[in-house]
Amino acid sequence: MGELRFEELRGEWVDYAIHRQERTFLPSEEHCPLCPTRPGGEPTEIPFPTFEIAVFENRFPAFESPRGAAEVVVYTDRHHDSFATLAPERARALMWVWRARYEELGAREDVEYVLIFENRGVEVGVTLHHPHGQIYAYPFVPPVPTAERAADARLGGCAPCALLRRELEDGRRVVYENEHVLVYIPHAARWSYEAHVVLRAHRPTLLHCASTELDALAEALQALTRGYDALFEQPFPYVMAVHQAPTDTGPERAGHLHVEFYPPLRTAHKLKYLAGSEQGGGVFISDTLPEESAEALREAVGRAE
């Protein structure tokens, strides 16, 4: 069981999950714990010879009942796939899995925020290469959704709705769009190739989406991640985070479903580091302009279609 401590200077929680120090670190393919268990082979986390999508409670949880939860979502039993290379049907199925886990975890009394995310690439600290994401169910509302609520109050309504309109009017930072979803590099992106994948209609969570919207979301996410891989013609590292309404019992349950990507690369071979200004002052310094990055990424998304 971890320990939560409150850091007064920044006004934020820090989670001490020291058992995670012992977690499996970059195993070879034959020792991958997320592969299916082959007949006569080493037992893995999934004791079946094949599967489509598997979800299980993390063996090394950052949060666990009765103070939240930590789950692993395995996208496929194929070790060398990625989100981008999943069959379209599997990507659509994944949206429904995310929806089901948000609903079940969010209904728990000890869960106030459900964060679905994926870390891809050793550059962002991945310890298992098998295609998978994670879910953290926090026993409090974290700083990012709290800031999003504050943005709603500042803009006098749904902030993602307002920002979406602004990006549509401007158009220079749009990298992909379909009937229900817009993908753009935001006006004030922190990362060179940061992208926001936003439902056009106001949908607080995956639970509010029609099945056609979930299909469109899967399509947009795959178009973007394929574009990322095409950008520098190499597997593109990123952190992907699904933003939805908090599940606390507060008076304000507003939110607007969108998925944010934070890729650490600023060129094919150079990483953006969080250094003095970012860590000491909380101010991102960017070496690139969102409009120029969007042009390159839009071209890569088109090339990867």
Binding site: E45, F48, F51, I53, R59, E89, W96, A100, S211
Partner: peptide, 30 residues
């Protein structure tokens, strides 16, 4: 078998008590 939209799912408990859920796409909204 449990359903969630177009998914069929089965729940298991691992030997150490952890939850495991396997999802299968049916393509039909249940």
């Amino acid at each position: 078998m449990e359903r969630s939209g177009p998914l069929a799912l089965e729940r298991y408990r691992k030997a150490d008590g952890r939850l495991l859920i396997l999802y299968r796409w049916t393509g039909e909204d249940g």
